[in-house]
Structure formats: structure tokens, C-alpha cells
Design a protein around this nucleic acid. Sequence first.
DNA 1: TCCAGGAGCTAATCATTGTTAGCCGATGGA
DNA 2: TCCATCGGCTAACAATGATTAGCTCCTGGA
Lengths: 193, 193
Amino acid sequence: MAGAAASRMPEIRAAALELFTLHGYEATTMAAIGARVGVRGPSLYKHVASKQELLAGIMVATMDALLAEHARATAGTADPTERLRRAVDAHVRYHARNRLEAFVGNREIRSLVEPHRSAVLSRRAEYELRFRTLVDDGVAAGRFRVSSARLASYAILDLGMGVAAWFRADGELGENEVSWQYTEFALRLVGAD
Amino acid sequence: MAGAAASRMPEIRAAALELFTLHGYEATTMAAIGARVGVRGPSLYKHVASKQELLAGIMVATMDALLAEHARATAGTADPTERLRRAVDAHVRYHARNRLEAFVGNREIRSLVEPHRSAVLSRRAEYELRFRTLVDDGVAAGRFRVSSARLASYAILDLGMGVAAWFRADGELGENEVSWQYTEFALRLVGAD
DNA sequence: TCCAGGAGCTAATCATTGTTAGCCGATGGA
DNA sequence: TCCATCGGCTAACAATGATTAGCTCCTGGA
């Protein structure tokens, strides 16, 4: 039954993700994760190598997805303002749609052991660098006005993390409004024309 | 020796703060905190009621300090732009100067048990409300242009948290530069004139 | 000089947890 | 029909770690 086995993993991962978000990695027990999928703690080891692998799998996949979204979003145009707009839109939407992943991805780096830790950190650095480059390009083209592209990119990234922290799909602000507003914030922030 | 006893507490609190920041509350052991002040784990109980009290003390004090800074900063003027500028300046500087406190204050809420949790959350809500009010006032006075004061205040608060996450006193960007830049970011973000 | 209390230590308690071992029922292909 | 494998279960292991108990040493005031 390779099919059934495969169908159990997403369920387990989702359960772990929710609990990691709610209580943190350290405070989440394998028994609790098992309970969410109707199974005892030890039974999880039929599907997962360890609790750490579970976390690592979630985090690495999250960063890869984020990088992929970014690439897709910025692929279509060369205009600095439009590129930044699309990148921020993708950034915010990802953090709104996948708030648990993004939340855990940001907060649990310290719970990761090597080599997963480095794997995630290097992807994060790459992601930040891409935003910084977008800002730099805009400045070079005379379209943005910022003193420090680094600070601006940090600020934009932090906005996304904020979204992951408070966004709720059933909240009064929908994904579109938030994305629109935050994109506007980011463009204002870099002094886009 | 009440004097000597009192002098040990700040040391212990500082050690706990560093470790909570580095590894998180759950992953920090009383033995590790003790080691930082040259003492065995159990000896800490001569000074502290529990690990939880240690965390609660740090977090409540942090929020109170932040609220006090905010009040001091905004006390001097009635001009919306200037009030927001000063509030953001205080916000950013606090997060830069007390990055460990701010970092732990933001991230370890889930490790707090009642009634400390509510105590911290209500202070946080109060702090956010003050920023939202500043934005609302500016909009009402026709000085700011934002669609959602709530989103704007969230964004501004998130910027501060970001600072606490990456700021380093010995980094290439000093407190003044960061404060200046971020204040600018915030004013641009709300569309200040 | 004497003693109370402060502050540290080790040993012990008690609970929790990740993980492994070994067992068992269902199931689906041969 | 029969058996291998999947996937679950309980029991057991081995750490770990917060907290308590009880002892000891030092110090400063009387």
C-alpha cells in the first residue's frame, strides 16, 4: 500500500505544522502530533524518521516554495517598480496563504540542527538578497530613493513575516486587500515614483 | 545580606534573557542559566521562584518599558506627523537598544502561562492601539493617506520587531542610522506630507 | 565569641518524552 | 488460500530537566 502510506504523510505534516505554530517545536510532543491524526506517538515512526526530520522537511520545503514564487513573480517584466510590486505581492500572498509554514519557518530556525539549519539559512539569505537586488536595481535606474537598500529589503521582508503572524483567512481583511495595501506600503517605503 | 541578594537578580535575569533569546524558553535549562552566573541550577531557586517567573518578569517589564517610552516620546507635541515620527523613533530605538528583551517579548508569548500571558497580551494590544490612534489622528487631520490604519500600525510595529531580530550594536549600521531610516520608512508608509 | 540567615551544593524526586523493541491484525497480490 | 508487508499498539529505555530536601559554610550583627 504505497499509496495509502503516501497519503498519511501530508496529514502528519499538517498536524505537526499546526502544533509547531501553536506551541513551538520544543513544546510539541510526538504523542500530540499523533493524536491529531488519530494515532499513538510511536506509530508516527512508521512514516517519519524523527521529529527533527519533520521540522526540517517543513522548513526547507517552505523556503523552496518561497523562492519559486519569487522567481515566478518576477519573471515577466524588467521594469524595476513592476518587478518589486510583483515580488512583494507574491511575498505577502505567500505569507497570507501559508501562514503556518511561514511562521514556523521564521521562528524555529534555532530548533533546527545541522545540516538543516544551514540549508534553511542559506535559502533565507538568498531570498533576502533577491529583494535587495530589486531595490538596488530600482535605485540604479533612478526609480527608487532609499539610503540603504539593505534596510529597505529587511523592512519589506519583515512586513511579510508580520502578515504571517496576524493574518487570518476569515478575518475582516482578505488576502487581496492585504496584498494591495502592503504592496503599496513597500513601494512607498522605497520611494518609488 | 539583602544587598548582595538583590545584586544577583539582574545578573540572573540577564543570563536567562540571553539564553532565552538564543535557544528559546523551552530549550533553556535552569542549569544553563546557573552556569552563566557561576552557580548550579538548583541554587537559582534561592533567588527566583521558578523558570516561568523569570520569563514573566522579563516580558512584563519589557512591555511596561515600551509603553513608558512611547508615552514619553509622544508627550511633547500635538502635530500628527511629529508625534508619529517620535513614536517610531522611540519604537525603533527601544528595539535596537533592548533587542534581547524585545525579541523574547515577541516570540515567547506562547511559553507564558496565565495570568502572565494575558498581562503581556493586553499591554501589547494597548501599544498597538496607540499607534493605530496616531495614524487615525493623522488621517483625520488630512496629514496621512492610508486605506487601513490598522494595517499601517501593524506594519510599523512589525518593522520594530524586525530591528530586534537583526540589529547588532557593533554592526555596520548604528542606532541613529537605523532609527532615521525606519522613521522615514514609517512616514512614507502612511503617506505623510 | 556566637548564632541566625543567606546562598551554595549534592542527591533525590517526579514527570515528561523521543525513540526502539517486539507483537498483532488486516489486506491484497500470487 | 496463504503469506509478506504495512501500519498500529503497548511496554520499555534512556535522557532530560524542573523542582525539592537537606546539608554546609560563611558572614555580619549583637
